[in-house]
Amino acid sequence: MALSRTTRIRNPALFICDLQEKFRDAIYEFPKLIPTTSKLLLAARHLTIPTYVTTQNRARLGDTIAELKPHLTGAHIKADIDKTLFSMITPEIDTLLPKPAAGGEPIDAIIVGIETHICVTQTTLDLLSRGHRVYVIVDGVSSVNPEERGIALARLRDAGAIVTSSEGVLFEMLGDAKHGAFKAVSGLVKDSKEETKAALEVFSKI
Rank of each mutant, 00 (worst) to 15 (best):
M1S: 13
L3V: 12
L3P: 04
L3Y: 13
R5P: 00
T6Q: 10
T7N: 11
R8K: 12
R8W: 01
P12F: 08
A13P: 05
A13L: 08
C17E: 07
D18I: 01
K22I: 01
K22L: 01
R24P: 00
A26I: 04
I27G: 05
Y28P: 01
F30Q: 03
F30I: 02
P31C: 08
K32C: 06
L33I: 05
P35S: 11
P35I: 06
L41M: 08
L42Q: 15
A43W: 10
A44D: 06
R45Q: 12
L47C: 07
L47M: 14
I49H: 08
T51S: 15
T51Y: 13
V53I: 09
V53L: 01
T55M: 00
N57C: 07
A59I: 00
T64R: 07
I65Q: 03
I65V: 15
A66W: 04
A66R: 10
E67G: 00
L68S: 09
K69T: 07
K69P: 02
H71A: 11
L72G: 09
L72M: 08
T73I: 00
G74Y: 07
H76G: 05
I77A: 03
K78Y: 07
K78W: 08
I81S: 12
K83A: 03
K83S: 03
K83Y: 03
T84S: 09
T84I: 11
T84H: 02
T84W: 07
L85R: 09
L85K: 12
F86P: 02
S87M: 04
S87P: 02
S87T: 13
M88S: 09
T90W: 07
P91F: 12
T95G: 11
L96N: 02
L96W: 01
K99R: 13
A101P: 00
A101V: 04
A102R: 12
A102P: 03
A102G: 05
E105T: 13
D108V: 11
G113L: 00
I114P: 01
I114M: 11
E115W: 06
T116Q: 06
I118P: 06
C119D: 14
Q122M: 15
Q122R: 13
Q122Y: 15
Q122C: 09
T123H: 07
L127A: 13
S129H: 10
R130S: 03
G131M: 04
R133F: 10
V134K: 02
I137D: 04
V138Y: 06
V138C: 10
G140M: 01
E148I: 08
E148T: 11
R149G: 08
R149Y: 05
I151V: 15
L153A: 07
L153T: 10
R155Y: 12
R155G: 04
L156D: 08
A159G: 09
G160P: 12
I162D: 06
T164N: 11
S166E: 03
F171K: 00
F171M: 06
L174S: 04
G175I: 10
D176Y: 08
A177K: 15
A177R: 15
K178Q: 12
K178D: 13
H179D: 13
H179F: 04
F182C: 07
K183L: 08
K183A: 14
K183N: 08
S186Q: 03
L188F: 11
D191W: 02
D191C: 00
E194Y: 04
T196H: 13
A198M: 12
A199R: 02
A199K: 00
L200H: 10
K205W: 02
